[in-house]
Computed example of a mutant assay.
Amino acid sequence: MNTNTQFIVNDQSIELVRFPKQHPKSSLQAWDAADEYILNHIEALGLDAPLSMAIINDDFGALTCALAQYNPTVFSDSYMAHCGIRENLSRNKLPSISTYSAQDIAGQDTCFDVVIIKVPRTLALLEQQLIDLQNCIGPNTIVIGGAKVKMVTSNAIALFSKYIGETKTSLAVKKARLIFATAASSDNEAPVYQSPYPTLVTDPNVAFTLYNHANVFCREQLDIGARFLLKHLPNTSGHCIDLGCGNGVLGISLLQQNEQATVTFVDESFMAIESAKLTLQNALGEEAKQRAEFTLSHCLEQLIDANASKADLILCNPPFHQQNVVMDDIAWQMFTDAKKMLKPGGELRIVANRHLDYPEKLKRLFGGCKVVANNPKFIILSVFQNQ
């Protein structure tokens, strides 16, 4: 039995894999102590089905698979999380369950009996989700948050208290803690809060306003890596892919600089795609919008599977973490997918932290690597698809 994939909790044995799949020798698991703590607490409550349950921010499906008998409604801003949940449900021969973007929480017309929230790394995302929950919980709703101890901060607890109601926390078990919140009763109604997102950002290096929804990386200022790459954008009149587009600053700048260019914006975050759309809508005219497409995808899988048109240029500011784990797996797949999606002679141009070993990886993959520019923190690398 592979102990890295076998999740045993409350007399259930569930086979769980991370998405994307890790190297067979990887020690990373598709669940954590907070998942186990939440499920043990749910078991102790002795809940009877049927009931309406929402699960928010389930990374790979540990909660969804273990609670499948309740047919939960599942929300996540991560397309990769959706893929992981579907894969693990299928792996355990469990019925399929509908998954929704985090932004779909606000549109629910159900008053949930139980809401389970894995506390995300980004407090702004937690804030947006708690605001959106206001319309679909009541005083009898059981609201449970859970995370590693270091993430159950006073700021996270304060958000539950502000947007839900009276909030308490559990003792720590295996370095995880739970948060319990109770919505105000009708006799003591809580105020209805409006979302402070998207955040609007202006920067002297960008000729338009950036719109950042709650889960967009570096949402309060222009990302410094992107700022550096903006100074070294190639001039192209062809087709470009903005891979891991975030708010779309790179691709929109390219559209603005060259009236012949077309750009496909790709990200695995629903909020990032919506931010890029909103930024483009407010930055450029109707003609420029006709030169843009938006795709939700894990790296470039969706474009590859759809046999989409290959690119003359791919721009990328790759991440070096997945959820709370520092790793270069996602960046490596971005590079390998880029190789599949570039035209002969097409260019992949990336900006990355100097300490990462991307130059060596790119040399292995493309046969060569050129340093376009560097500064004390970042390096801009360029590689070309073989003719």
Rank of each mutant, 00 (worst) to 15 (best):
Q134E: 11
L233T: 12
K310T: 10
S101Q: 04
V149P: 00
S90L: 06
W31K: 01
S297E: 03
V351C: 01
L63N: 03
G251F: 06
V74Y: 04
L250D: 04
A54V: 07
E274A: 12
K175L: 00
M1F: 11
R91H: 15
I131K: 06
E293T: 15
P139Y: 13
L278N: 10
S297Q: 10
I55L: 12
I330H: 05
A288I: 13
G367D: 07
L39K: 04
I8V: 11
G61F: 13
V9W: 02
Q387D: 10
D132P: 13
T336G: 00
G345M: 06
I224K: 08
Q385D: 04
F335H: 03
N215F: 06
S253N: 06
H23E: 14
Y163F: 13
Q69I: 06
A183Q: 09
A81Y: 00
N282W: 15
N375I: 10
D267L: 06
N215K: 01
P139A: 10
K377A: 15
E293L: 08
A181C: 04
A54T: 08
Q256T: 04
P204M: 12
S185W: 12
L381M: 09
I380G: 07
Q385N: 09
G238M: 05
T169P: 00
L243A: 08
I330F: 03
A106Q: 11
L356C: 08
A106N: 00
I224H: 10
F160G: 07
N88R: 03
